[in-house]
Every structure is written in structure tokens, then in C-alpha cells.
């Protein structure tokens, strides 16, 4: 899969690299959608890691599902989860049980990577402990600044908050703690004057 080229962005938005297999006692990979490609690339370049690798995979919201390719890697543990929320209890357990030297990798959408980093931080690890590689969809995870609800997989701008129904424009301002971009009511000053949505995040 092609790696994503990002436009220059404001400083709160993370920048992503390429997964580099590191020396470690265990290797935890969490990926969604096209992020599977980054996991395959990393483990193909360092096959010795497979015996100590645990892969958690969530098929993409856009339908991309590379479960077969990941299973074919022959890693020590593979788990396919239907959503990040469903994967979180397992991820939390793995992080809590981790020993010194476990390497953590996240690949796929920005929302997935940020949520993995947030889970790692909740387990006491620094943000930098998670290697990240963006692959596939640019769909955004957006928090409504008004009702605080998070809408997943936002591709349109503006879009309707899935919680309170306000029409929000999507800022580039990004919170690592919330693992989300910020959504702000677009017609606050002129209620009802809402421009047409465009697909900004494919």
C-alpha cells in the first residue's frame, strides 16, 4: 500500500513515520484497515520477530480487511477485533502485563494510532514508546467541542455530530489525550447557514 503524504499541518497534529522493527522482548502490533500493510512490511523485513509478536487487527471502516495476509504471517498471537472499542480490554491487559522491553507499533488511521498511544500512556508508557505509521484512510476521529461526543470515521467537512446533531467543521487542532480532532459548530453565528459538505478526508 502507498504510504500517506501529508500536507504541512499545524503543530498539534502528530507526524508519523515508518515502522522499524526494534530490539525487544516482545512486539505488540495494533493496526486497522490498510495498516495491515505496514505490519506485513515490518515483519517481512524482520521475520525473527514473529515468534514474539502479538498482532491485534481491526478491519477498516471503509471495508478494507487484510485479515488473511496477517494470519499468513504466522505470528505467535493474532486477534481480529470488530472495533477498537472491542479490542481495548485486550489491549489494556496486554499493556498491563508487559515486561520491560516490549515494543509497541501502531499502523493505520490517525484515530487508531492515537487511541493506541493513549492506551499506552494510561498504562504508564510515554507517548514516544509507540511507533506509528499512517496507512490508508484519512478519515478522522472528531470530538464535538460542544457536547463532547466523539464521532468516528468522519470523511465529510462539515459533518453532523453523531451525538448532538450540530453541524461541525473539522479543525486540524488535534488532542493526543482525546485521540481526536476538534469539531466546532459551523453555523453558530448564523444558525441554519450551512455550506455543502465536501469529502475532505478519504
Amino acid at each position: 500500500m502507498t504510504k500517506t503524504e501529508f500536507e504541512p499541518a499545524i503543530p498539534s497534529r502528530p507526524v508519523y513515520g515508518v515502522l522499524h522493527p526494534a530490539v525487544g522482548s516482545a512486539h505488540l502490533f495494533v493496526a486497522d484497515g490498510e495498516g495491515a500493510g505496514a505490519v506485513c512490511d515490518a515483519l517481512t523485513s524482520a521475520p525473527a520477530l514473529k515468534a514474539a509478536a502479538h498482532v491485534i487487527y481491526i478491519p477498516g471502516a471503509n471495508g478494507s480487511d487484510h485479515t488473511g495476509a496477517l494470519q499468513a504471517l504466522g505470528v505467535a498471537q493474532f486477534h481480529r477485533a470488530p472495533s477498537f472499542a472491542a479490542a481495548l480490554p485486550r489491549l489494556t491487559k496486554v499493556l498491563a502485563d508487559a515486561h520491560m522491553g516490549m515494543q509497541i507499533y501502531a499502523a493505520g488511521t490517525e484515530g487508531l494510532m492515537a487511541q493506541v498511544a493513549a492506551a499506552a500512556q494510561a498504562a504508564g508508557l510515554p507517548y514516544e514508546a509507540v511507533q506509528m505509521e499512517h496507512r490508508g484512510s484519512l478519515a478522522r476521529r472528531v470530538q464535538c467541542v460542544h457536547c463532547k461526543g466523539v464521532t468516528e470515521n468522519v470523511t465529510l467537512d462539515p459533518f453532523q455530530c453523531s451525538h448532538c446533531g450540530l453541524t461541525l467543521f473539522v479543525r486540524d487542532h488535534f488532542s493526543r489525550r482525546l485521540a481526536a480532532f476538534q469539531g466546532v459548530c459551523i453555523d453558530a453565528e448564523d444558525p441554519g447557514q450551512i455550506p455543502a459538505s465536501v469529502e475532505r478526508f478519504k
Binding site: 503543530p11 498539534s12 463532547k148 488532542s175 493526543r176
Partner: peptide, 22 residues
Amino acid sequence: WSLDFDIGMSFKQWHAPVPLAH
């Protein structure tokens, strides 16, 4: 500006939306 959104950010992260100054 929203404390709830910005809490936990570094200096340049929470100032990110300010135009021109960076």
C-alpha cells in the same frame, strides 16, 4: 479556547491554531 481539549498538550501544541505567530 477549550481547556478540556487542550489539557495535556505541549506549549506549541496548544498554541497550534494561532495564525502567523509560529
